[in-house]
Design a protein around this nucleic acid. Structure first.
Lengths: 213, 213
DNA sequence: GGTGTTACCTTTCCACCGTTAACTTAACGT
DNA sequence: ACGTTAAGTTAACGGTGGAAAGGTAACACC
């Protein structure tokens, strides 16, 4: 009799076979909430339920717990993450330049969706639902795409050693700077873009073939 | 009348001037809990209070909120972090070798105290108490020590560009691999030690002076 | 067109959390 | 002995994720 009536219209019940509709609406609402608030904590079961116009327990008809919901949101995001990077990488003809562009896109995308990035890459393993642990990285083929991009550089004879290891080394660098900038925004960083580029070029030079000496 | 009686003896009240005693006991208990459970969530105000033998609100006589308590715990840890790295760095005569040892020590320390590392470096900025944001990095002089170590290498003519930027680039690498290994322990990583070394050597080579070309 | 079945959703509840306000109790100076 | 004050407690608020059990609307069928 108070605010509830004013708030969100109570959703009309789905038809018999269309139970999955609610699932999508839930993910949509959760994604919206996550983007708007940029705060994982604000995406509570109750808040999502309210945004959808449904009661909290209904969410558990489609997700076994809160983490599954959050990762369902991030699954979409991860697919876009992959797309964005792939597309950025196509902006250069040479494999090395492509890899550089990919790195820049990675950091930029992470920084522009920090809360998503945090959930995807900075979470406790225990809070990751079963099967999502590395599945998130494999299901979307983002990691494979990255290894491929590095392998293309290796095939040009520019990289020494195992391309997979080189790929992870580069990943560590971009993830490192991305997560640090997200977690410590008030740290007295030098110029952001220059710093990111320094990380990228250092990474590439680090895995490249050593000088003839 | 159930488990409470069995549990922890109710602490004897402190003398008049010794209110600070409780503060230490609280930090001790919180630290113990954090280490034993390796789960930040398990370090609840109530759990800490119970471990100390005191009621939850008493904690607020010494810490304005939960985060301040957690960061008080990590302040100690951070000091040890710095010590361990400094000591590791003294194990080599040449600046470059010293830096490598420092990096190895960083990753090893982070991996052996993952929950501390998470709180110190992987948290939301909003969850960091006022004045701790970069204060944690500055109060302990860990960051300065790192920059100094890099500067020593730079003075040997091995590093090009701003030593501070180079230091951050190296930090990004070690932090990247540390946090990834913490967050995604089930990912099919290649051999851990080899990977860590690959990151370290790549980082060093990345910030080193380029070949004469 | 009533009737049973089943998918969809709600009501109600629990145990826990961080935090605050108001109160008690023990130690001290006088 | 007494007032003051530091050091705690009791009780409560509003929030959380989650489980158990019940209601209700949509459909298939006779």
């Amino acid at each position: 009799m108070t605010a509830e009536s004013v708030a969100h219209a109570r959703r009309t019940r789905s038809r018999k076979g269309e139970g999955e509709k609610l699932r999508e609406e839930i993910v949509d609402a959760a994604e919206r909430l996550l983007i708007e608030t940029n705060d994982e904590e604000a995406v509570s079961i109750r808040a999502v339920a309210d945004a959808v116009g449904v009661t909290p327990p209904s969410i558990y008809l489609h997700f076994s717990d809160k983490n599954e919901l959050l990762f369902a949101v991030c699954e979409r995001h991860f697919a876009r993450f992959d797309e964005v990077i792939e597309q950025a990488g196509s902006g250069a003809d040479d494999p090395l330049g492509s890899l550089l562009l990919r790195g820049r896109a990675y950091v930029a995308f992470g920084l522009s969706h920090p809360e998503h990035y945090r959930i995807m890459f900075m979470r406790k393993p225990g809070e990751t639902p079963d099967g999502w642990q590395d599945e998130l990285l494999r299901r979307s083929s983002a990691f494979d795409h990255h290894v491929s991009a590095v392998t293309r550089v290796a095939e040009a004879g520019i990289i020494e050693g195992d391309p997979t290891v080189a790929a992870i080394v580069l990943w560590a660098g971009v993830h490192g700077i991305t997560s640090l900038l997200i977690s410590k925004p008030d740290f007295p960083w030098p110029d952001r873009d220059a710093l990111i580029d320094a990380v990228l070029t250092a990474g590439l030079r680090g895995v490249a073939v050593p000088p003839t000496s």
